[in-house]
Amino acid sequence: MDLKIAARMIAVFAIGAGLTAAITALQNDEDRRDVAAPRIEHPGGDRARDRELSRCRDLGTAALEDAACRKAWAENRRRFFRMDSPDRPTSPKANGGDHA
């Protein structure tokens, strides 16, 4: 009878130790991701760009004919959609790579 109680106690301690190790490992992974997170270059945004976009917004439909507004909108779309930097590298097939 004492052997069954001892075995159960050992099992409970083992499960508890395993859960503690798992929780600690998960918390450490979250901390590491924060360190590797990309930083925002200008947290408040570019004030000149914001002023230009606000000016264009205030112009209403007249902004459609304004070249500066069209340029500001195109730059904002490019920045928003990150058209200048692809998220993932292209495959060798897309680059026309040789198959040796």
Rank of each mutant, 00 (worst) to 15 (best):
A67F: 11
F80E: 03
A14C: 04
W73R: 10
V12A: 05
R33K: 10
G18H: 02
L53G: 02
L19G: 13
H42F: 10
A25F: 14
R51G: 01
E41T: 10
F80M: 06
T24V: 15
C56L: 02
L3W: 09
D66E: 15
K71V: 08
E75W: 02
L53A: 05
G18C: 06
E41Y: 12
F81E: 14
L3I: 07
A11F: 13
D50H: 06
Q27I: 07
D46V: 07
R82T: 07
F80A: 09
A22F: 15
F13W: 09
R78L: 14
I23F: 15
V35D: 00
R70P: 03
T20L: 14
G45Q: 08
R8L: 14
G18E: 03
M1S: 14
P86S: 11
G45E: 07
R33V: 01
A72S: 13
E41I: 11
A67K: 10
E75S: 10
C56W: 01
A67G: 05
R49Y: 02
K93C: 02
G16I: 01
A14V: 04
R8W: 13
A37Y: 00
R39E: 13
A7T: 02
A22I: 08
P86V: 14
L53E: 03
G45W: 09
D50M: 13
L53S: 06
I5C: 05
V35F: 01
A36E: 08
F13S: 09
R33W: 07
H99R: 05
W73N: 03
L26N: 12
A67L: 11
I40G: 00
K4P: 00
R78Q: 14
D34H: 05
G97V: 01
A7P: 00
D34C: 00
G16T: 02
E52W: 02
D98M: 03
D46P: 00
A37P: 00
G60A: 10
C69P: 01
T90N: 06
D34G: 14
T61M: 14
T24L: 15
R57W: 08
A37W: 01
L59S: 05
K93V: 10
S91H: 13
H99I: 05
H99F: 04
I23Q: 15
G44P: 01
G97D: 07
T61A: 15
I10M: 10
R78W: 09
D66Q: 10
E30V: 06
L26S: 08
N76A: 15
D50L: 13
A94G: 03
C69N: 05
K71T: 11
L26C: 04
C69Y: 08
P89Y: 13
A25W: 15
L19C: 10
R78V: 12
D87H: 02
R55H: 06
R49I: 01
